[in-house]
């Protein structure tokens, strides 16, 4: 029995590797790479700033943008980028001064963005099957135009994070010290939310807006466990999410399951495995938990 399974696995692997020569598959691989970079870099900032819930809110607000695009008949991804940016900046304005109340504000925008999307789609004549791909993602359906847009968004994200890296680090580590040193805290707050919006829209194509929150939080939190710097955390988070996307893609191929869910399932399993292993090692070698040098 195991032999049969192994053969089946090898066959699927062969089939998977064959499929890599096909256009849609190459698009999927590029999409995985681009989202991994955005997820790793921005996800790290999201995790250290404890904005995971906010990122989830931004992702669901994006559905309003999808609805708007279908309603107006405009290109989906650019319209969604615009709408989500506006939504996340609104969240930024509402959470800048009252950080303690931000969870309520995020909850409200989370649901209202979603509701707006549903209503706009109801009002749009005809029914578009493609809609499900925005909710649950479909990395295999990413077109070449989408890839160019994703590459462009990645470039923007990388340039801005490079330029403001020290400011983001100071802001994330110790907001009060950062403002006492004269860092443009309010500007950085909005900039970060804007970058979260861009990232979220990009990943929607890959795992869907409902599952975005996992890809933004799991790779960075795994990467942050032993990293000695924020930039190292970003790098390892990119590696983790690339691994999750590729493995998820492979499993979705082998078992004929949804790619978005497969990617998240791989990520979640890796997360629980690493957490339990870490706990086990700490319990076995108790006296001191040494950090990696």
């Amino acid at each position: 029995m195991p032999v049969v399974k192994a053969t089946a696995m090898t066959e699927s692997l062969g089939f998977f590797l064959d499929s890599l020569s096909m256009g849609f598959m190459q698009n999927a691989l590029f999409a995985a790479l681009f989202s991994a970079v955005a997820c790793g870099v921005i996800g790290s900032l999201v995790v250290v700033n404890r904005l995971v819930f906010l990122a989830g809110g931004v992702a669901h607000t994006a559905y309003g943008g999808v609805g708007l695009a279908f309603f107006l008949g405009t290109p989906v991804l650019p319209t969604t980028v615009g709408f989500t940016l506006a939504g996340s900046l609104a969240m930024g304005a509402l959470t800048l001064t009252h950080r303690e109340r931000s969870d309520t504000v995020i909850g409200v925008l989370w649901a209202s963005g979603m509701a707006l999307g549903v209503i706009l789609l109801d009002l749009t004549p005809g029914y578009n099957v493609d809609l499900m791909s925005y909710l649950f993602g479909s990395i295999l359906a990413v077109g070449t135009d989408d890839l160019y847009l994703m590459a462009g968004l990645n470039l923007i994200i990388l340039v801005l994070v490079f330029f403001f890296y020290k400011d983001f680090l100071a802001l994330s580590f110790d907001r009060e010290f950062a403002s006492a040193r004269g860092a443009p805290v309010a500007f950085l707050h909005f900039l970060l939310l804007g970058l979260v919006a861009l990232t979220v829209v990009m990943i929607i194509r890959v795992v869907g807006l409902i599952l975005v929150i996992a890809l933004v939080s799991i790779p960075p939190s795994l990467a942050g466990r032993h990293s000695s710097s924020l930039r190292a955390m970003m790098f390892f988070a990119v590696m983790w999410s690339l691994a999750f996307c590729l493995l998820g893609l492979f499993f979705s191929f082998v078992f004929n399951i949804s790619s978005g869910a497969a990617i998240i399932a791989v990520a979640a399993m890796a997360y629980f495995l690493v957490i339990s292993l870490g706990w086990l090692l700490r319990t076995l070698f108790r006296p001191h938990h040494q950090e990696e040098p």
Partner: peptide
């Protein structure tokens, strides 16, 4: 006020 679990070394904090 600072966070536990933040990936940062002593030297990087001083550089800040």
């Amino acid at each position: 006020d600072l966070q536990p679990g933040f990936p940062i070394t002593v030297l990087q904090v001083a550089l800040m």
